[in-house]
Design a protein around this nucleic acid. Structure first.
Lengths: 143, 143
DNA sequence: AATGAATAGTTCACCTATTGAACTATATTA
DNA sequence: TAATATAGTTCAATAGGTGAACTATTCATT
């Protein structure tokens, strides 16, 4: 098969999966959060006391986009900001207890839904898929 | 490995790939179009004389979002609208000659870049990956 | 044939997400 | 100390999305 066709099929499928996860979060889990916001929240959870600059690097967006995203999470009281005592330019981000509880509950619901879909795959298939996806992400970021 | 970890790894990788394709289109190909716009344009190209409703169904978005997207492509003179003669409610969409030329050129450049990345994979790996991705998209849309 | 329901598409107000340039405040370095 | 670099914010602009209200048209049913 041609590369052209493969890339087209990839784009279509990836778009469908991406949009579907958004819809699941909203309609099935009824979590008052977007996929992007949840990804950011989750990153802060996993990388406690990270900074805006860290997040900008991780997600490949500008710092002003991070400021806006952080503000939305802050207004929902899911995260808090703490300025560094020695370097007053730096603001450390961390997840509040409310935020932690939210992550636990939302992940639980999300995994139930996703797990249901993954019943259509055997273990080998899943591992191979994740491995290829991560490899693709890795080579695309090696520039 | 736990499902939880798999889903997390999936989300991280898929985000990175998604954002990377946006950056390639903009910075490497210098095409004055976004990934979303290109997907819509490509769908109209492949499904000549489709309608807004078709697109809304294909991409899983509301009709008002499609109207806005169509307007952006129309302003760039990449597509045209033709009202149905027998059912005057319906507007058929098709790609202009300028739009066709644009698709050909942009795809050519895009495939060169993506093809470079795919050199890190053998054929089997690519086919298995695409197959799993399409299967995932399919089961997620079967509700 | 008339009317009520359905369908196709647009418009509007509002929200999320992003960019890039200009800005503030605080280190660092030459 | 003066110039430069870094961390983060603000602002105006753009893309993309929702949902409700709307126009215009067609279909269906009595």
């Amino acid at each position: 098969m041609e590369l052209k066709v493969l890339v087209e099929r990839y784009q279509t499928a990836i778009n469908q999966v991406y949009r579907r996860i958004n819809i699941i979060l909203k309609e099935q889990i009824h979590a008052d959060i977007t996929t992007d916001q949840f990804s950011t929240l989750h990153y802060i959870f996993k990388n406690n006391t990270c900074t805006s600059t860290d997040i900008a690097g991780e997600f490949g967006v500008g710092k002003s986009a991070v400021t806006a995203q952080i503000n939305r999470l802050y207004e929902k009281e899911l995260i808090e900001r703490n300025r560094d005592d020695t370097d007053r330019r730096v603001v450390y981000l961390s997840v509040t207890p409310k935020g932690t509880e939210f992550i636990v509950q939302t992940e639980k619901a999300l995994f139930e839904v996703i797990g249901k879909y993954l019943q259509n795959f055997n273990e080998d298939e899943i591992y191979t898929f994740i491995h290829s996806l991560e490899k693709l992400a890795k080579v695309m970021n090696e520039d």
